[in-house]
Every structure is written in C-alpha cells, then in structure tokens.
Simulated assay, not measured.
Amino acid sequence: MSDPFFARIRELKFKQLLVFERVVELGSMHKAAEVLHMSQPNVFKIISQLEELLAVPLFERSSKGVVPTEFAQRLLPRIKPMLGDARAIGEELAALRSGERGQVVIGTLISASARLLPDSIALMKQRHPHVNIVVREATNDLLFPMLAVGELDLIVGRVPETSPPGVSYHALYKEQLVVVARACHPLAKKRRFPVAALLDFPWILPTSESSVRNRVEHFFSQHRLALPHNLIESLSMLTNVGVLRQSDTLAMLPRTAAQLLIDDGTLCQLAMAEDIAFGTIGFGVRAHRLPTPTCAAFIAALQKVAQALSTRG
C-alpha cells in the first residue's frame, strides 16, 4: 500500500467506525440513526465520509435498506475487536467513577439459562442495581466469535471438552442430566423400566449444535439404541415446557434447569437406573484480558449461586 493510503487510514475516527458497525448490523441507516440517537442525514454523511476516506463503496442502497459490499464485510471483523475494547474501557472508567454503573453482556446456553443465570442476575441486581445486564442465548458456535471480538463479556454454560483459542474457562460445578415428563406420564410411577421403553414416547431434543444433544445421543448409543424417531427439535425452554405439560413427550434436561419445574409439580423426574453425566458448568472469558469491574462483579455473583446449587445437588 502507498503512504497516502496509510495517511488516510490514520484519519479514521472512532465515531465513523461505530456508525459503520451499527449500519451493517441493522441493515438500515434509519435504524442505526435511531439506535445512535443521530439524524439519518448525519449517519448518511458519516458513511459517505468513510467511503471517501477508504476510497471503496461500503454499501449498496435499496428501497429496503442497505446491503454491505465485500469491502464492508472484510472491514467489519477488523473493527469489532476495536469497538469491543473501547466499550470495555468505557465500562471500566464508568465503574471506577461511580462504583455502581456499567454493563455486562452475557452469552448463555440452555444448561445455564434456566437456573444458574437467573439466580445470578437476581443477586447481581441486589448488589449492583444500576448495572445494565444484557443476555444473548445461542449455541457455542455463535457465542465464541462474539466473545472473541468483545461483543460478549463472558459465556456461561457447559465447559467444552476443548476450549477454543483465546478463551479461558473456569469451572463452577458438575452437572447431571435427568429425564423429565409430566407428572401423570405412564412412566412416572414406575421404579424400574428398560431404557428401550423411553423410545415408546415422543421426545424433545435440542438441535445438533447443542452440548445437551451430544450427551443424549451418547446415552442412547451406549445402550445400543437409535435416537427416537418421533422427535421435536427445539432450543426454546418455554416451548419445550409447554409441550411436556400437555403430552407424554419426554426430554432430557440439566438437573438444575429442571429442578424448579420438578419442585413445583410441573414436571417429574423419571427414575433411571443410572446417573447421566452432562459435564462441568462454568464460564468462559477472553484469555489474557482482565474483566471489567462490572464483569468481575457478575462473576462473583455466579460463583456464589453456583456454590449454593452444587451444595443442594
């Protein structure tokens, strides 16, 4: 690249990159203007300045919004870590300034979203009521890239067998899987039944990207059984509970996620002749980076709740 081009790169401003990132994510200059509390003409002007500075087109305009060009798609992953670091700096300065304000963005999996995470959020809000908490629920294949670029402060859920590069995992407690059904299910009152009897009923399983799905497949494979043919695939806890309550459908859930539903009589745990190991529940953060004060406070809440859950189990 020529020296004049490097000179233009040095003229890039943080605000230009922030506006660019919002326009790409939202697919609309109008929506980006609303989120950033700016006028649409101002957003258009900043994008035009950025295109002129970089000497490439970044968006194709249409009646439905804007579509990022190949140049924009290459630029976005380069600037996301910069914006993530800038947000972390802002959160840290805000926390140091007031001791109570800031934001923590959490990625989570089904293994933590039903009990560990809600209890931790409640405790965090008791301790730090003015901290903003954002939760993103997805599978690890989506969460890991978000953590890597700073869109997430931490991931809470089952610790993977192999940590991806740049992620440091910390264990909280061991988790088991339980087979659950409605209280009046035909298998609910039985003390013993063959594992093959589970295949006589419909099943809800997570999608193939889920760590719970992998353990369920391993369980049936150990017993030399195929997966159930009458199958619903869903990651929605609300949907799954609704189906379980009104049918003879079965599901396998992390014990702590199922316990509240078992305690209030919504579901029952089937009597299995063996424990079904799920793995270690913990949290992952970006390696070699100190968490922001708000993130560190949330980790402390996680550890407190996890200790109570593991003691009860």
Rank of each mutant, 00 (worst) to 15 (best):
R87N: 01
E161I: 05
V305M: 10
R182Y: 00
F193P: 01
L117I: 00
L231T: 15
G279W: 07
R10G: 13
I281A: 01
L225Q: 04
R224P: 03
L147H: 08
V43I: 09
S63V: 02
L302Y: 12
E209K: 03
G313V: 00
H288G: 10
I106D: 03
Q40A: 12
L36K: 09
T207E: 15
P164L: 07
N42W: 11
T207P: 13
G84R: 02
K45R: 14
A148Q: 14
R101M: 10
E151Y: 03
V67S: 12
Q73W: 02
N132M: 10
H128W: 10
H130P: 00
L172F: 04
P186M: 05
K45W: 10
E233M: 07
N42S: 13
M124A: 15
L231F: 03
I299R: 14
S2I: 05
R215I: 10
A122R: 15
R255K: 13
V135L: 11
E25K: 13
Y169V: 07
D119G: 12
L309W: 11
P228I: 04
E137S: 15
P118Q: 00
A297L: 00
V212W: 04
K64L: 07
A296Q: 11
C184A: 06
F298T: 08
K31N: 08
V178T: 11
F59V: 02
V135G: 11
A148E: 15
A183L: 06
H128N: 07
I232W: 04
L123M: 08
P81I: 04
Y169F: 14
A33I: 01
L123A: 15
D3K: 09
R255V: 07
G84S: 03
A7Q: 14
K15V: 02
R97A: 15
L76C: 00
I232Q: 04
V305R: 08
D248K: 07
N132I: 10
R158T: 08
P206Q: 00
R8W: 10
G84T: 06
E151W: 04
K189M: 13
N214V: 02
I9N: 07
A112Q: 07
F219W: 05
C295G: 09
A7N: 13
F220S: 09
A171W: 05
I9M: 15
F220Y: 15
